[in-house]
């Protein structure tokens, strides 16, 4: 059962601004006119791994997301390989340093054709409250694959967090479906880049995933 609501949250703007700076310093976020893999044109290019595989980028992303999860009672964090892997690892590491450990997991892009045939690797089990992360959301394909996999495994998605929201339909669909969604950086259709602003659940809020 859900209830109709709109909730607005903010990630720590100062830390989010630092992430944006690092994204620019590392070349993870570029401005110009780019052709995306889908053929769409964009004023921005974002390659999350340049940010999340840099030492300070990994730490800042891990810290901002960990802080965001303070009262979520999440049992585990993860997402679709490979964009989500360094993010989930960074959060797990920060959570250990902060004395509130959140283990991580990896959702495989495709199930292994041999061996254990596990779709999800890592610390996850039925009934867990999990957080799904990704570096970027466009139409939502990767995030949805991860959500499907963990829900299939009997887990409850308590939050979805991405570093960059391109605002091309993916986050909007998630919010409409009742997922608690947060982005750190927003690339708006107008070309504007904002940080620490977008975090909302609209429509029917799913019971049990109400943010703090």
């Amino acid at each position: 059962m859900g209830m109709s609501s709109t909730l607005e949250l903010k990630v720590n703007t100062k830390d989010a601004e630092r992430i944006l700076e690092i994204a620019r310093e590392t070349g993870a976020l570029l401005q110009g006119k780019f052709t995306l893999a889908s053929g769409k044109k964009s004023n921005h290019y974002f390659e999350g791994k340049r940010l999340t595989l840099s030492p300070e980028g990994a730490y800042q992303v891990g810290k901002v997301i960990f802080d965001e999860l303070a009262n979520s009672h999440a049992d585990a964090i993860g997402g679709l390989a490979i964009g989500a892997d360094p993010i989930a690892t960074a959060v797990a590491l920060v959570s250990h340093l902060e004395g509130k450990p959140i283990p991580s997991f990896i959702v495989r892009e495709e199930s292994k054709q041999h061996g254990t045939r596990k779709k999800i690797e890592g610390h996850i089990k039925e009934g867990f409250r999990v957080v799904i992360v990704d570096d970027v959301i466009t139409t939502g394909g990767s995030v949805n694959k991860a959500i499907e996999a963990v829900e299939e495994a009997g887990c409850k998605v308590v939050k979805v967090i991405v570093i960059v929201d391109r605002h091309e339909g993916g986050s909007e669909k998630l919010k409409e479906s009742g997922y608690d969604f947060t982005s750190i950086i927003d690339l708006l259709p107008s070309g504007e880049v904002t940080v620490g602003k977008s975090s909302a659940v609209t429509g029917d809020v799913r019971e049990g995933i109400l943010p703090r």
Partner: peptide, 10 residues
Amino acid sequence: EERALPVEEA
């Protein structure tokens, strides 16, 4: 793959 592709180049 895995790099910024300027519209002009494409």
